[in-house]
Amino acid sequence: MQRRDFLKNLGVGAAGAVILPSVSFAADAPKPKGSNALPYKDALNAVTGGKTPEVSDKVSLKVPEIAENGAVVPVTVEVESPMTDSDYVKAIHVFAAKNANSRCIDVYLSPANGKAMLATRIKLGETQEVVAVAELSNGKFLMASQSVKVTIGGCG
């Protein structure tokens, strides 16, 4: 069929009927896995030594609800802390729960930072949870998470 005719004939039903097979084709294709591939649970355990982080509003995670573009997703993590020698945030870890390598970045801080914050931009392969874990100087782990909907990149 000519593309022009195809467009002309387009309706809800037609679009749906054509999309479904394409999407299932995409899902069947094997995903390549890099040598760093590590599922989220394993990556989290490696950071916390098996401890379960406490969900805390002291960790503020800012990500968009809907990503304009999975290739550039802004992430900001701020942790409430006095950042003194006796009480500070040692590290901020960011995970993308469904990326083949769920680890994005591990930031090691010190009281010389003055404030515990990280802002960067990550790639998300699909709609998923982004998780921020803060490691405190007293050995505690706090966390926050939010789902990010990744829409199709489309015509590019």
Binding site: V72, C104, I105, V107, N113, M117, L118, A119, R121, K123
Partner: peptide, 27 residues
């Protein structure tokens, strides 16, 4: 590194965006 002292170290993985930007604070 600020005046020879390490302030922040980041371990980075491949899921950061192309032409990456890293922002933190410093006293």
């Amino acid at each position: 590194e600020y005046n020879g002292k390490v302030i922040t170290t980041m371990k980075v993985w491949e899921s950061l965006s192309v032409n990456p930007v890293f922002t933190t604070y410093m006293k």
